[in-house]
Amino acid sequence: MFRDITIGQYYPANSLIHKLDSRVKIIATFIFIIDLFIANNYIGYGITSIFLGIIIFLSKVPIKYMLKGLKAIFVIILITGALNIFMTPGEHVLWSYKGITITGEGLYTAGLMATRLIFLIIGSSILTLTTSPIQLTDGIESILNPFKKIGIPAHEVAMMMTIALRFIPILLEETDKIMKAQMARGADFESGGIIKRAKSLIPLLVPLFISAFRRAEELAMAMEARCYRGGENRTRMKQLVIENKDYIAMTIIAIFTLIMILIRFI
């Protein structure tokens, strides 16, 4: 049941995108998101969709798998779309009823916004789908490192992220297990009004919280037992190295950004 949630879950494969340095991918994704806000017309988004298509193809992640993540935020896309359709003032009134109007401008912005959101999700899920959590946090730590001097605890932030990411599947698994155990005792999580349903969650949430605290405590103890003492002087098994393909990737994202700027301002 719960294990099937896959938003942003790492998809192991052997592709060019998978092999890129995680720092490059993080920064490129960041730039890509900014580019999405620079682009403000359909020509820009047309080029973006081709760009994304090529990257998805190179990443060897099946399209189906990638779109599954979109399903979860489908409602959000719908709501923003609807808000834009009804809230945008404009001259080309298409339909009007008791003060509610739909304008041509509204439809246009709604379309743009929805596309932007979808690209945003796809862009960032390419990052998490092709980068294992360990590489991701290593990358973040390495990017944050220069800011240590101004007091940003790079290693601690990265460690916290690693642990949080690691705990997501564990907690989902645990939820699944407890839910089944309570269902075996006749618990019903699906039917009834809102109050009954909220009440029916107690047999699930209490054991879940207890187990989360227990796990956190055990983890802390295990880390201490293995003499964990923060990032000072720690070396890594896998050093991050920038290679030729990473330079090429950076060049490509720079060119893409340039194109986005040109399209907007010319």
Binding site: E174, K177, I178, K180, A181, Q182, A184, I202, P203, V206, P207, I210, S211
Partner: peptide, 11 residues
Amino acid sequence: LVFQYPEHQLF
């Protein structure tokens, strides 16, 4: 059905 480690389901 008594699950593996059933004590984790007490609430």
